[in-house]
Design a binder for these strands. Structure first.
Lengths: 131, 131
DNA sequence: CTTACTGTATTAGATACCTAATACACTGAG
DNA sequence: CTCAGTGTATTAGGTATCTAATACAGTAAG
């Protein structure tokens, strides 16, 4: 699926949440497809099942996943693509953090852009490699 | 100086550390210039003095700041601009996080680039406003 | 029904971080 | 010297996160 980065200050459950969203956006998980069980994913990520459960619960509340208690968890049929408005809000925060880090590191805008393009490529390539 | 974002999962001392580095990169703090005292900055940021002290200590160990015990803390005379190599390393991590978040939000590369340009502009503008 | 798998809930403990309140040693100005 | 301002250190308490160990309820297959 994806990897957890212990060095990332973001909580693990948030990394899992984002990882699932990313897989859906990349098409690795289609609407209706089943996601790994709480225990399986926890074992795969070397993480506590409770942490995975928390991520699944949040994704369920957001309408991204649908939980069938006792049966399993599935990608929602209504992918509920975030509207352009919400997307902009998320991007504004994330880009601000990135810009701040880049400037603090002494980088110019052009360098930050180039790094971003390479990062995009890496994420997509990594996804195709696992497919 | 700058602001602390309580919603940011990054520890406050890291936000302070990055904030100081950003101010130096933007030229708001020149080599030899004095930075606010631990207590002053803590009061300004509504934060505990110990947290500021931790950031100053790290910056001192990195050679970014020079501590003169009993007198004050100053920007190092040798700004020690991170070499292109270290900068690339920092950018690789930060850009990967940003790209991951952007993809998870359902954004294309072009949208992420545009958001990045606006974020850069905002950071620089905010700096000029306070100058 | 039995079994094995789902998601969920609870309790406890460990760690990191932040806050608060002090205290200490050093420096420079009056 | 006195005093106010430096950075630094220590102790305590609170909160969030993660882990671990269980337990419970629902579902599907044999």
């Amino acid at each position: 699926m994806f990897a957890i980065n212990p060095a990332d200050p973001a909580p693990i459950w948030r990394q899992i949440e984002e990882g699932v969203r990313r897989l859906i956006a990349l098409g690795a998980l289609s609407p209706g497809a089943g996601v790994p069980s709480v225990r399986d994913l926890a074992k795969d990520l070397r993480v506590n099942p409770n942490t995975v459960a928390r991520a699944y619960q949040r994704l369920s509340e957001s309408g991204v996943l649908v939980v069938k208690r006792g049966e399993g968890t599935y990608v929602s049929d209504t992918p509920s693509h975030p509207k352009k408005g919400e997307r902009s809000e998320l991007l504004r925060d994330a880009s601000l953090r990135y810009a701040s880090a880049a400037i603090a590191a002494g980088a110019e805008l052009s360098e930050a852009e180039e790094a971003l393009r390479q990062a995009f490529e890496r994420v997509v390539k990594e996804h195709r490699r696992r497919a």
